[in-house]
Write a protein that binds this DNA or RNA. Structure first.
Lengths: 418, 418
DNA sequence: GTTAATTAATTACTGTCGCGAACAAATCTT
DNA sequence: AAGATTTGTTCGCGACAGTAATTAATTAAC
């Protein structure tokens, strides 16, 4: 049963044609302005290396489609012919970005260019079943979507804390919501008529993804990970999640459930994890691990966990031995896991989110020392570790960016039907 | 419905032009024939989805460049106009594939299409310094390269067991050769005049890479990993190496030293590793780990290690308790590490090389059980695990494929200067 | 205040790429 | 022998990008 299993059943990827070229370049122009903000024709031409005429045509299409606007140049200052700038139209494409939290769900309407247009928040009904909760979510989204049907593109991006299959947004497990095996992606798509342009279709696209993956996207696009070639994003509060962006693509969100870095085994004689296994990394580095190491009892209310953690960090800052020692232990465990990940993935930057940013800011030495000891190369030993710069918004922004992706890779497909 | 299938390509910099289009498609045609063997115009047209005329032009260029030949069709049999097949010219592009082993280095001349044209083997001079050994290697390669200067493309691919920086082929550490910090890639490039087309340039391109990475390439291209979307290749004899192929690109070979999966930490109270750290995965799953678990003393000669391992496996097959238990322990450790890697990377296939193929064939249950216990999804729990189908040749083939890459992605650049 | 220099956008022209339709070729079927 | 079937080639078309000349708008220099 080994060799030469039939034929390579996988079809060769279709070869690109001139139409693909146009699609690609149209997307590149839009993406550039979306990511880097307003800029002139000349700047776009320079950045993309295209011919001037080409850029002109592409910009014209995007303006005509309502995604970009041409504005008169602000106060020339430089000499030479002043050049009008092109900027995104925030209402030209909007994403309903959703963050599913324990108490309720937060909704942000994010426009093209990354501008947050509005925010809302609704509590869960504690008595509601999973089905009812999802139905409520759909209802709220429908309401928000209906208010914005003028935009040529509208999408929904949901950040879900838990184990989510990127391919179709199937939620295998969302511990803090108590959800298990919920086909959230399909339910939202149906409820909002994703794809159905005319009849009842409120949005073009729905994505549901792991919040750590989306945090990685956010940091890569508009945060501390910008410009990295291979970014490792590690987030922790309760549990540890992570996302890997490799040369611009998210490792994990495409197919299965990759990126569950919190559950790599680091100690066969360790603590039992929520997932049922023993010795998962997250049992040694998440917030409860810190409390355990500090001898602080687990607060009964999940809501007060953050406060207890802040307390331990404060105590450590103040020099109380028990807290200092706890921080040292957890920081070391953080370093050990990071070292493994560096061996496996070779990131050129690491971004820490959640309480890890605070932990590392307080006590970088134990973490760095492990990397120094275990790294095989200067690159590995000295990987830059940065705090996440999008702490509060990471999931939102990532969800928005991710949901916007279809538009950015093929604006024409969205504009054509109009 | 089918939303969620976005393939995020978050890059922006280089915009493709029509020239890139042509380059791309020319490469696709060559790659297709190289990988899947001789085929007709019609088949190529179908596989690539290009217009018939386009394929005709591209094939014409490749034939004119001496990379492909047109052959009369074999026995029509079917009705319709018979179609000549196009096949690779093995001598049209050759790679000098090198495997650096303990006793000496092996050299295979591999032609386009993956055909091995010749093999050679030279022992190291035990008294030689590292510099002298490299000089010898260069000399042998020069000799082999000079014999084949007729080919439009010639390259060198070196598989090196150790820690190798993919970017430039810098060998940080090659334990079995006793090499440390050798700029092998640069030395070979200089010695063979890589790139210098006219004056003394014998080859176009030189790559040096980790043998596990190259094994992964070989298995992905022409072995048990063919067709996988995300392939995890794990190899072990002494030490554990690994390679990850994600959507057709090697995760480690591009930049730093990634892919050193043998050195992820699995037990803080474990055994000290050669690398100086404690509890590396390879201390629990490589050949010496098996011997240790079986209570067999480490043979003094590295050469007799394989024999000792085979003996333990044989004993286990025969049901001797100590050997059976040792195999169980190591298989379990294999499963633990694989489970972590599955969590992190989410491969859709795992290929085991080196003695791990035999170990798993003998005792798959403990490994599979760990994956079953720890996996979060059906995909993760049931990842196919296959033995490498290119056991002996993996490094060779991978080196050849990898060194051929520049030709396959841009045949015109090679053909133009002629 | 006029002129030169500088930078930018538009326009027209040219060459290339891939597509599709029509036609030609080679074999099989009836 | 005529039609059917599949394949390869040719040629016109549209789309795209590159180049160069022209026009436009501003600053700097005299």
């Amino acid at each position: 049963m080994a060799s030469q299993s039939s034929r390579p059943a996988l079809k060769s990827s279709p070869a690109p044609t001139t139409a693909d070229l146009r699609r690609d370049n149209l997307g590149r122009v839009l993406r550039l302005v979306h990511e880097d903000g307003a800029m002139t024709r000349a700047a776009i031409t320079e950045r993309l290396g295209l011919a001037r005429g080409t850029v002109g045509v592409l910009l014209d299409m995007l303006v005509r489609g309502g995604l970009l606007v041409e504005r008169s140049p602000e106060l020339p200052g430089t000499r030479g012919r002043p050049s009008p700038v092109f900027d995104t139209v925030p209402t030209g494409a909007t994403v309903l970005a959703v963050d599913l939290a324990v108490e309720g769900f937060r909704l942000a309407v994010v426009g093209l260019g990354g501008r947050v247009l509005s925010r809302h928040e609704w509590p869960w009904d504690p008595a509601a079943s999973t089905e009812q909760s999802v139905a409520t979510l759909v209802e709220r989204l429908r309401g928000a979507a209906r208010r914005r049907t003028a935009a040529p593109y509208q999408a929904v991006g949901v950040a879900c804390w838990g184990i989510v299959r990127g391919r179709d947004g199937f939620v295998h497990l969302a511990p803090n919501l108590g959800w298990r095996d919920v086909a959230l992606g399909a339910l939202l798509s149906d409820g909002l008529g994703a794809g159905r342009a005319g009849a009842g279709g409120l949005v073009q696209h729905v994505v549901v993804a792991n919040d750590a993956d989306l945090g990685a996207v956010a940091e890569y696009r508009r945060g501390a990970g910008a410009g990295a070639r291979r970014l490792l994003y590690v987030h922790s509060d309760v549990g540890v999640g992570g996302g890997i962006v490799h040369e611009g693509t998210v490792l994990g969100a495409s197919g299965g459930y990759a990126g569950e870095i919190g559950h790599m085994t680091v100690d066969p004689r360790g603590v039992r994890c929520r997932c049922g296994a023993v010795g998962c990394w997250e049992t040694e580095v998440d917030e409860r691990a810190l409390l355990r190491a500090a001898g602080v009892p687990d607060p009964p209310e999940p809501a007060s966990l953050a406060g207890a953690v802040a307390g331990v960090l404060e105590d450590a800052r103040a020099g109380r031995p028990a807290a200092v020692e706890a921080v040292r232990i957890v920081s070391t465990a953080l370093g050990t896991g990071l070292a493994s990940l560096v061996h496996i993935l070779g990131p050129d930057r690491i971004v820490l989110g959640g309480y890890l940013a605070d932990l590392y800011a307080l006590s970088p030495v134990p973490t760095r020392r492990v990397l120094q000891e275990r790294g095989f190369s200067a690159e590995a030993r000295d990987v830059p570790i940065l705090p996440a710069s999008r702490r509060a918004d990471a999931s939102f922004l990532g969800a928005a960016e991710y949901a916007l992706e279809p538009l950015l890779s093929d604006p024409a497909a969205v504009l054509r039907p109009r």
